[in-house]
Amino acid sequence: MISNPNMDIDNLELETRNLKPPTARLARVDARGLDYRELNRRVDELLASGAGEIEIRGVHGQRYIASRVRRPVSFRIHGTPGNDLAAFSDGVRLEVFGDAQDGVGNTMNSGEIIIHGRAGDIVGMGMRGGRIFIRDEVGYRTAIHMKEYGEQRPVIVIGVMGQDFLGEYMAGGVVVILNLPPRNPKSFSRPPAFIGTGIHGGKIFFRGKLEPYQTGKEVGFDRPDEKEMEFLSGIIRDYSNYFGLNLAQVVPDDFIKLYPKHLRPYGRLYAY
């Protein structure tokens, strides 16, 4: 018979109720040679058997890791996770020891991702909650269409810098750019441009200076206020702790704030 999702929407809940007795809290997976479906299925099994922490080694591009995990589980990922890492995820804490690819935290709802390396394009696309810390640089269109809602206010922290179109369409949340020296200057052969183009919500804190042409015309500039300075201190502290770095030279005073000049950037585009 062809299964009919009309009929068995509640099955998922049932499955999680049929838990096996808990085994070891920490579970290990060797991802070498596994495709993503197999890997994610194993993760499901481990979670179902009560694992509270999962270490995956030998990751080589498998997609969608932790994307359907919806409880506060810790992941430690060694290798290079594939695209859409933790897409749609809700509440996981995920640490990557290596670089990540495109689509980290795509439409993520809550949780925390810490990347001991760089990440590719569209980090935190459509992200609604949680935090992403990236030690090094990120690719194009970081935080594109990131948004916030109620208590959910996503934060992306970038150690180095993002390439062009950072914060495009940004509708909420916070991006912090520490502007540390790049791992490889070849990723920034020209200063990143189109920062915050189309921004209509949220804020970007950038350490250092930006030329006006580097940002979208919708962007306003200001200094962080006191509360924001405090927030930045916290972020710098967390960043230093997460990556074991001493960042004495990075102080909240060095940041500028980019904010949307209008909530409705395109209000005057149309003839009604």
């Binding site: 569209i122 809602y149 509708a171 209000g267």
Partner: peptide, 30 residues
């Protein structure tokens, strides 16, 4: 929509995780 009251709800022209057919496949499987 899970966005603050009064902000424009902009839906970008493309899905920014789909710029090619293999990207569509990526979202389908996501």
């Amino acid at each position: 929509r899970m966005i603050p009251v009064g902000t424009d709800a902009l839906s970008p022209a493309p899905q920014h995780d789909i710029y090619s057919i293999e990207d569509l496949s990526m979202l389908i499987y996501a």
